[in-house]
Design a binder for these strands. Structure first.
Length: 265
DNA sequence: ATGGTTGTCATACAA
């Protein structure tokens, strides 16, 4: 069995106590973090090692963005793509090296949020988000190994991935143009959306609730921005998928919650 | 239509 968690942690240094709480209680084999918000030298590697996560791949930058993958299973870092073509740290790829794990590739990605206005003519960040997705699609077309790609995709593609489809149609993260770009990425490899395999639409499934709504639980204006997508054959080996919604209620929480998938490898 | 919050870094920017 191999278990993998993805979690946008929104500052790994600030939230290391929550990470420790999560790892102690749930102990996934691999943890993919997004928005670590630090450079490699500032990453709390020692704390991870002491928890048994001795294998660490960090792609960081000062203050913003940044991703890291930590693991109890041995891996080798294989890639750091700049799909935005602007030097931001938004991806790191690793491959498990123990033969028992069949060379499983784990890609950890943080798709840009894309700013507020869903129009690339007036909002460059939105254009960068769309370009990022197109470059991901071109890359996915060539993927030829069993791969799991996880992370904060910053897009909620399905109607049941948001609290109100109608009210969010013009809100960045749920606009048709983004959903279509994400679909091109999906079609380029034929990924399986593991989250929706295990929690089929139209069931409620959210992974993020804004800090701007203090009554997040009562109002439940969530979105499914975080995803775990697998190559078709690998997806068939996914046995369990969990959403740790309670983590949104922890003290000084991230606005995203951890998602975990277990594979029979 | 507007503002609501958080984190980093330095008082603005990204989400």
């Amino acid at each position: 069995m191999v278990s993998v968690t993805t979690w946008n942690i929104n500052s790994v240094r600030l939230r290391m106590p929550l990470v420790e709480q999560f790892l102690t209680a749930h102990a996934p084999d691999v943890l993919c973090l997004q928005e670590i918000k630090c450079i490699e030298e500032q990453f709390p590697a020692k704390a991870f090692r002491e928890l048994g996560y001795e294998h660490i791949a960090i792609h960081g930058q000062k203050g913003y963005h940044g991703v890291a993958t930590v693991s109890r299973l041995p891996f080798r870092e294989i890639s750091r793509y700049d799909w935005q073509d602007n030097g931001e740290a938004r991806h790191v790829g690793v491959q498990l090296t123990d033969p028992a794990h069949q060379g499983m590739v784990i890609e950890n990605v943080y798709v840009p949020a894309g700013g507020d206005v869903p129009d690339r003519e007036v909002n460059a960040k939105f254009g960068q988000k769309l370009d990022f997705l197109e470059r991901m699609a071109r890359w996915a077309d060539k993927v030829d190994q069993p791969t799991l790609i996880v992370g904060d995709f910053n897009i909620a593609p399905l109607e049941s991935d948001v609290w109100s489809h109608k009210q969010l149609l013009k809100v960045v993260s749920h606009t048709p143009i983004e959903v279509e770009a994400l679909q091109r990425f999906m079609d380029a490899h034929g990924w399986t959306d593991i989250g929706r395999e295990h929690v089929p639409a139209p069931q409620r499934y959210y992974s993020w609730w804004s800090y701007r709504n203090p009554n997040w639980q009562t109002n439940d204006k969530g979105r499914r921005l975080d995803h775990m997508w697998a190559s078709p054959d690998l997806a068939k080996q996914a046995t369990r998928h969990t959403i740790l919604e309670e983590a949104r209620n922890w003290e000084r929480p991230s606005d995203h919650v951890p998602l975990t998938t277990e594979f029979s490898l």
